[in-house]
Design a protein around this nucleic acid. Structure first.
Length: 276
DNA sequence: AGTTCCCTGAGG
DNA sequence: CCTCAGGGAACT
């Protein structure tokens, strides 16, 4: 489940090895992963040199000398550097080869929800997902954050998950940010005062930047591009910890369903909002 | 605003 | 066998 800190960690790993490198060949093993279609993807990408990688929310963008690749890992997407000629694994869907054969890069995705989209330089704005993407969660000012949430009637958990308000948070970092801010996930945004929203922004910024520093959270099978684990999961206070004791106040962490997502919170640190 | 679907593997 | 996990699109 790569969210912002994991995608950022992967971005750094890819940038280190790929910047300045020329793609000599691409093999698409699962058609639906490569957009707009496998042939167009391979044609657009083959022979191109990678200038660098950027990120907005959970979307990775490879900047090429001509055109770009936008990619989304969804929950189980992974990039693996492997020796040239390595047999693709069961769930390897795209293989990149590079000039001089220093290594191959295998895109692996067990659930096949992720995608890689080859686009012309000005093409990102034509992808609806990009158009609707809010500002990056690590790049949004307190003022802008306040503007985006103030007065909204929805509950905070689904609002924070929706990428068009702020981009990059998933289930882990929403639960962790709300706990650090001391705000119950069912609270509606319009019931927060300015100071509450600022505190939420601060908590989110802290959680995300600490997670980036530790290389993200390795729960289930997340690895960075070098196959290494992240360590932020050791700092989780509520995510995946229902029934355990809150490290801050000692109350038992509870789990509810909200917007179809399992949601963990501490009833001590995050008191329930007044009834609707 | 809530539900369903996409997909596979893990766990009951 | 069933249910759950999850990001986001596409419904209702």
């Amino acid at each position: 489940m790569p969210e912002l800190p994991e995608v950022e960690t992967i971005r750094r790993g890819l940038a280190e090895r790929l910047t300045g490198r020329r793609i000599s060949g691409v093999r698409v093993l699962m058609d639906k992963i490569a957009r707009p279609d496998p042939a167009a993807f391979a044609a657009a990408v083959t022979g191109r040199t990678i200038r660098g990688l950027t990120r907005r929310g959970k979307v990775l963008v490879w900047r090429l000398d001509k055109g770009l690749i936008a990619g989304h890992l969804k929950m189980t997407g992974r990039f693996d550097f492997v020796d040239p000629g390595t047999q693709p694994e069961k769930h390897t869907h795209v293989v990149f080869e590079f000039e001089g054969r220093p290594f191959e890069l295998h895109y692996n995705d067990l659930r096949q929800f992720g995608w890689l989209h080859a686009l012309p330089d000005d093409g990102l704005d034509r992808v609806s997902f990009w158009n609707q993407l809010g500002p990056d969660a690590l790049d949004v000012s307190p003022d802008r954050f306040r503007e985006r949430f103030q007065g909204r009637r929805g509950r905070l958990k689904p609002l924070l998950l929706s990428q068009n308000l702020v981009a990059g948070l998933g289930n882990i970092y929403v639960d962790e940010s709300l706990h650090r801010a001391g705000i119950h996930p069912m609270t509606t945004a319009d019931s927060l005062c300015e100071a509450d929203i600022d505190r939420l922004h601060g908590a989110m910024t802290e959680v995300l930047s600490e997670a980036v520093e530790l290389g993200g959270s390795s729960i289930s099978d997340y690895r960075n591009a070098e196959g290494k684990l992240g360590y932020f999961q050791t700092k989780h206070r509520v995510y995946g910890k229902s029934g355990q004791v809150c490290p801050v106040c000692g109350r038992e962490i509870e789990r509810i369903k909200l917007g179809g997502r399992s949601t963990c919170y501490c009833p001590g640190c995050q008191p329930a909002p007044k009834e609707d």
